[in-house]
Design a protein around this nucleic acid. Structure first.
Lengths: 252, 252
DNA sequence: TCAAAAGTGTTTCCCATACACCCATGC
DNA sequence: GCATGGGTGTATGGGAAACACTTTTGA
């Protein structure tokens, strides 16, 4: 890609006469599952209460239409994230593309879903254009499905707009699988330049929804990250309630 | 999804007046990387020589525009696969969605890429509507990139249409990563109802581009598949050059 | 009977897990 | 000192890799 040039004359004619409306086109959106870990170590995500139809008043994941021609899908996702959270340079990863007919009552809508992992202190939530409200919801795994709740609302999977429950489930599954072999967890650190092993461990525990053994976590962390140079051990320490903990710096 | 109904009167009005052309819409295609293993155990893929502009005469992966409203993306991919290969019920998996502006000189095109794994004896290649030629190419890893070749043609990554080289690279990477923990390899067996351990091992070797130790491969195969009931050991054997080999049947 | 391929058994090493124990710090 | 969390060391077990060896078959 990038090396292609129109050289022949008949190709130029073809491109000029190309009728872009020959095929019926779907709308394309970039939707984002914004994950964070809140102050009491619960995995949370950002939901928007829809201000317009369809699904007016329903909670949904943030997203918006692709500005075709002016931006890539990745850029559309980044723009949408910026609009909703003020976050500019986030860890943003394409998740999956959803395109069943009927998932949007208006017309065929293809949604390219992205996952963002953002530390809570960097999140400055604001409502976008067509949204009346935005809030973080804790994720709770319950028999029969996931429940999303915060101080003011509790909703179940079935109460989400569109097929967003399926999208969220896909995102959680992927997040859990990736964390074992990708450094995703570091994206959720409040300070990637100075963090303790315990802080990182709490992130892993939150995502995997289990408790981990600290000595063993330390060993695998040192082997996989410090010894490979992806994390640097600092000389400084952080004061906590007990013995002060060594600080580390994430490099890449 | 599926439980949503328009109940309010003003929502009905909204949907009636919804202007589907308000946002500029991109074209959406479903593109397919058809992998197979050819008779001399080389990983191969299906390429189409483009009969129309753009990239007329270039080799490309098969694909076609989504018939928005009439089919899901998955169905579009299945239809396209059927058109090109006569294969109807294949292992078809969504890979990634590519949507950089400029990747197609006509207009913004979003391509949802799929991977298909099909045994060569089931492949009946035919050219589709806008393609003048279709052929299998062996994949060879060379310094500086991948080379695709068969009896009649040899092409490099840079000679492929659009950004298809990137799509293929993504597909190969994913295939290699998945095979270690997903039963993808079984999709490439000539006969899933009666295969030997060596046959399966050759598929793994082809995909991973290494040689494997047969005793160890047997052990992990028995533990992961036979003992878990996903593969059944048959009483029959297959005659080969040496000692005849036990046959197995893939269940799910 | 010999080569070729299938199949078995053994040894070694790495790594995950479990857990006992020591160290530093604040109150 | 003592509670609290950070940090170290050791024992155990399972699986991956390497490989020596046996069995069955066709030519």
């Amino acid at each position: 890609m990038g090396t292609y040039k129109c050289t022949s004359e008949d190709e130029k004619g073809f491109l000029k006469n190309y009728d872009a409306s020959k095929y019926e086109r779907p709308s394309v959106t970039a939707d984002i599952i914004v994950f964070t870990i809140d102050d009491d170590d619960a995995l949370s995500l950002l939901l928007i209460r829809r201000g317009g139809y369809p699904y007016k008043g329903y909670w949904a994941i943030p997203g918006g239409f692709l500005n075709a021609g002016a931006e890539s899908i990745d850029e559309a996702a980044a723009r949408e994230l910026r609009d909703e959270t003020n976050v500019d340079h986030a860890f943003l990863q394409q998740l999956y593309t959803f395109g069943n007919p009927g998932r949007d009552p208006r017309t065929t809508v293809i949604s390219v879903a992205y996952t963002a992992l953002i530390p809570k202190n960097e999140l400055h939530i604001k409502a976008g254009d067509d949204a009346s409200e935005a809030a973080l919801f804790k994720i709770k795994y319950d028999i029969g499905g996931i429940v999303f709740y915060n101080d003011r609302n509790t909703i179940t999977e079935a109460e989400l707009a569109f097929d967003h429950a399926e999208i969220i489930r896909t995102a959680i599954t992927r997040l859990r699988n990736r964390i074992d072999y990708e450094p995703d967890a570091f994206s959720l650190l409040k300070d990637k330049e100075a963090f303790t092993i315990s802080e990182l461990k709490r992130i892993y525990e939150t995502i995997k929804n289990t408790t981990l053994d600290l000595p063993n976590f330390r060993k695998t962390f040192l082997r996989n990250y410090v010894e490979t140079g992806r994390v640097e051990a600092l000389d400084t320490t952080a004061a906590t309630r007990g013995r002060s903990a060594r600080l580390y710096r994430f490099i890449g």
